[in-house]
Amino acid sequence: MKPRTRWEAVCTVEDLVPESGIAVWTEDGPVAVFYLPHRLPALFAISHTDPFSGSNVLARGITGDLKGEPVVASPLYKQHFSLGTGVCLEDDTVRVKTYPVLLDGNQIRLEVRANQRQSVAA
C-alpha cells in the first residue's frame, strides 16, 4: 500500500537563494531546499539534519558537483551528500532523506509523507 503523502507548500521562489540552500519546516521536520539554476532539474530537497552531528545545518552547506553529481558539503564536518539520492559520498552506508520537489506557480512544494502524529489535524 502506498503511504499517504501530500504536496506541502513550503516557500516561494523569492525565498530561494541561487546556487545555495534554505531551510524550511515541514510536517516531516526540517528540510533543506536547494536551487541550482544552471542545471536541470534545478530544485532539490533533502533532510536539513546532518547525520554526523545531528544538527540541522545542511541547507547552509556549499553546493557543487563532484564527477557530475550535484552535492552539498556539510558545513560542520564537510562530508558530501548527493542532492539526488541523499547518499554520503564519503560513507555510502549513510544516507539522508530526499524529498520530491516541484514548482507550482510561485510555490515550492515538497511531497512529504503524512506523519501519523502531526497529521491528525489534516
Binding site: V17, P18, S20, S53, S55, R60, G61, I62, P75, L76
Partner: peptide, 22 residues
C-alpha cells in the same frame, strides 16, 4: 553580494562561527 553568497563557507555566509549544534 548575490554572486558571492553561494561561494562562501557557512561561517562567511553568516558572518559568524558555526558551532557543533548549528
Amino acid at each position: 553580494a548575490t554572486d558571492h553568497v553561494p561561494l562562501q563557507d557557512t561561517n562567511d555566509t553568516f558572518m559568524a562561527n558555526m558551532q557543533k549544534n548549528g
